[in-house]
Each structure stands twice: as C-alpha cells, then as structure tokens.
C-alpha cells in the first residue's frame, strides 16, 4: 500500500483560502454589488447609474437584514445566502416597486382566471407557479430532510418556518387572484424558500460536528460556485 501524499483533495479548502479571506470576501461583495447594479441599471432603455446604485443598495440592505434573522450569523453564512438569492430569487425592477403603492394596480382581478375558468387555472399553474416547484421546493425538502437527519429525528423545525410557509401560501393565493401582485408574490415565495433553505443549510453544517471530510468541503464549494455562476450568467445574460 503506497503512502498517500497530501494532494489537492487531501487539504481542507479553508487552508488554501485562510490567508486571502478578507480580500476574497471584499471581492465577492463588490462582485455582487456590481452584478445587482448592472441588473437594476439595465431595467431601462439606457443604463441609469442612479437607479443602479439605488437598486444595488436596496439589495444589500435586504439581504443583510434577512441574514440577521438567521439562527447562525457569520460572513460565510451571509455569502451563502446571497448566492442562493442571486440564483433563485426573481428580479423586481424599481419601476415595479414604485407601482406597488397603487392599490388599483396591485389588486386588479386576473382576466384569464375569470374568462377561462379551469383552463385558466392550468395556465396560471404553468406560467407562474411551476418555476418554483421545479427546483426550489425539491431543494427545500432535501435540505429540511438533511437537517432532520443530522440533528436527530426528535429535532423540531422552528415555528418561524411554519409561519413563513403560511405567508408563502397566502402570496400564492394572491398571485392566483390578482394580476398586479404576481411579480411581488413570486419574489416573496422565492425569498421565503431561499431563507428556509439557507437557514437549514447553516444548521446542517452546525450539526455536522465532526471535522468534515475534505471531499465534503470541496463538494460544497463546487455546488455554491455552480449556483453563483448560474445567478451571474442570468443577470449578465
């Protein structure tokens, strides 16, 4: 049996990145700020710097505030949440956000539901709801399962998860009834699911009390890199 040499896959990634933690975190922050400002700035015919900066700042504030609500606060946890956010949460333009104050616009009945009855319901399913079932809901189930398996069968999910899921269902119902609220509902449902996934993932990491295998850490990095790339490509694309 030959002795194993300490190779690329025998060293924890943290040992590679330890010296560069601060510059890497800063770079990541700047990159995300740039991506979101690019997205907000290009909501109009020509690029608008003011809207870009304002939108990106709102994004940073929202993600930071949500991260304060998670059970495990850390810089790495914040970045993991932001990666999930960029990959899965739909974009709301500033123009749409300003329209949210108009009651008549927000709560206008959906014509397709009124006119087409059952076929309208199927159309709504395909057009508005399906995207979340496609990936986010299976992801949430998997991560919740992992949390339960790691933390022990007796572990209970926090009350806030059930409250948030009830809020998501409420927005789902609104989305099926009113046309102006569709984008907001999609955003709210996605952000709730992303929050639960991210928070549960942090718990799974915490319960994994033993020193994780090197392969586990690399696999996790691979997954998050793939998710961030997806988000970045979609925004720039």
């Amino acid at each position: 049996m030959r002795e194993r040499r300490p190779g690329f896959l025998n060293i924890q990634p943290i040992e590679y990145f330890a010296r560069f933690t601060a510059p890497m975190a800063l770079l990541f922050f700047v990159a995300n700020y740039f991506l979101k400002s690019w997205q907000f700035g290009h909501d109009y015919d020509s690029f608008r710097l003011l809207e870009a900066v304002l939108g990106a700042t709102i994004f940073e504030a929202v993600t930071f505030l949500i991260c304060l609500l998670t059970s495990r606060r850390s810089v790495a946890g914040y970045f993991r949440f932001v990666i999930f956010y960029l990959a899965f949460v739909p974009h709301l333009s500033l123009g749409y956000i300003t329209k949210l104050w108009q009651f008549s616009y927000l709560f206008e009945f959906r014509e397709d539901l009124v006119n087409h009855k059952w076929s309208g319901l199927f159309a709504l399913w395909s057009a508005d709801w399906s995207g979340y079932l496609q990936l986010l809901v299976p992801m949430m189930i998997l991560v919740l399962g992992a949390r339960k398996m790691n933390g022990g069968e007796q572990t209970r999910f926090p009350l806030r998860y059930w409250v948030l899921l009830a809020v998501a269902c409420f927005f789902l119902a609104l989305m099926f009834l009113f046309s102006g609220i569709i984008n907001l509902s999609q955003y709210m449902i996605a952000i709730i699911l992303v929050y639960i996934i991210s928070d549960s993932w942090e718990q799974v990491r915490r319960y994994d009390s033993t020193e994780p295998e090197v392969l586990v850490s690399w696999a996790e990095i691979l997954m998050f890199a793939a998710l961030w790339l997806k988000g970045a490509v979609e925004i720039l694309g």
């Binding site: 990936l135 990491r205 994994d208 994780p212």
Partner: peptide, 12 residues
C-alpha cells in the same frame, strides 16, 4: 443543480 444539492446533502 438538483444532483449537486443531493450530493452535498448526502455528504453533509
């Protein structure tokens, strides 16, 4: 993404 997430979940 789904298979990568499943892999990460299993390993964790």
């Amino acid at each position: 993404a789904l298979s990568l997430i499943m892999m990460a979940v299993l390993l964790r």
